[in-house]
Design a protein around this nucleic acid. Structure first.
Lengths: 204, 204
DNA sequence: TAGATTGTTAATCGATTAACAATC
DNA sequence: TAGATTGTTAATCGATTAACAATC
């Protein structure tokens, strides 16, 4: 079953809520909806993508719902990735331990600055960028998280593509031109900020 | 005119492209669409939100289009914000100089760790969190960028709300319960990653 | 002119909201 | 039973895509 992007995003938010939920065994669609400022029937519709049944008059079993989300979104199958750029943002993501709970395992980091090479950040070694093609092959990694400075982003993207990377999670404020077969996901923090502060709707 | 969120997001991507564009005075909707793997009529529709006219047979004047986006999205009016949490992510965002080009000015950072208080990161001083309510009032800041560790996020959100913050840009993997009148925008990096790697559509 | 591109309308598609019967 | 909640259908809304006349 193919789950729409927006539903995937919301399901992770529901999971955050369940993770912190301490008020009982059950939670209702209305409770979830209120926390996220959204429609309660949408919550129920989203949950219908999971194989999970609620109970009339009580709602959803918190533990069951949590593990349904985990199974459906595949939190247990670790996807392995490299971080490209060992600056502050790269280091922050390397230290972001929640990733591994949600199926993202960061294996190593890469940088072209010799001072950074050899360092270890949260158990992830920083390699020189020239080592990348070899390690992509040997470890069979196809996801790269791009956190280099703006001016190096395009060149890095091509280098990644040539090294066999298939998915680039792009944190730089640049649109990357990549060969067919390589997929870019733009995190676009600036766009996100502008959405947030421009209109006066409620954020999700 | 109220511009839909998705359009705002795409307009910033177009701006990234124009920023790097070196192939001439004009650019066409097809060129933009190709870089972003999207429909060209959508590019033209998005541009219709700006007061900008293209030219048949040549396309859009790059400089004009760029400044139309800047004006419409208000890049010149700086919105001022505080960063809450001077860890790696907070520091990365403090060093992210592109923000100021797009209308986001970070005035200061806050942390509860005495070791960090007094430091300066990219000209932004780190204050003790107890100084926040006073500085919110004096500097008239209503945006906070929340980068504290997961377990402190909810308490921090309430503290921010009580201090007069109206907009919380939430980088933690938590859903925040906040009083009416406070708006939360969840960056939800994990959800973003799962969207990216789950389905096989092209990212935007 | 011929051809490329915009501007715009119509058609399609998908997502959200409203409503309510079924259930316990 | 009465009441609360799910599950689901129908209605609405908005966004994307397709198509093409107008323009230079």
């Amino acid at each position: 079953m193919n789950i729409p992007d927006k539903v995937i995003n919301r399901l992770t938010l529901y999971h955050y809520i369940l993770e912190d939920y301490e008020d009982g065994l059950f939670i209702s669609s209305t409770q979830i909806a209120e926390l996220l400022n959204m429609d309660d029937s949408q919550v129920r519709k989203d949950i219908k993508y999971l194989n999970n049944a609620g109970k009339c008059r009580v709602g959803y079993n918190v533990q069951d719902l949590k593990s349904s989300i985990e199974q459906t979104l595949g939190f247990e199958t670790q996807k392995e990735a490299f971080i490209i750029g060992a600056g502050n943002l790269g280091s922050a993501l390397a230290k972001f331990d929640s990733f591994s709970n949600y199926g993202l395992r960061i294996l190593a980091m890469f940088d072209n600055n010799p001072v950074k090479v050899g360092n270890t950040i949260n158990n992830k070694e920083v390699f020189h960028i020239s080592k990348l093609p070899d390690l992509v092959r040997r470890l069979n990694v196809n996801i790269a998280i791009l956190t280099v400075p703006r001016q190096f982003a395009q060149d890095a993207a091509i280098f990644l593509a040539n090294s066999g990377i298939k998915y680039i999670w792009n944190f730089t404020p640049c649109v990357l031109a990549v060969p067919k077969g390589v997929k870019v996901w733009n995190e676009n923090l600036i766009g996100s900020f502008l959405q947030f502060t421009s209109n006066d709707k409620d954020g999700v």
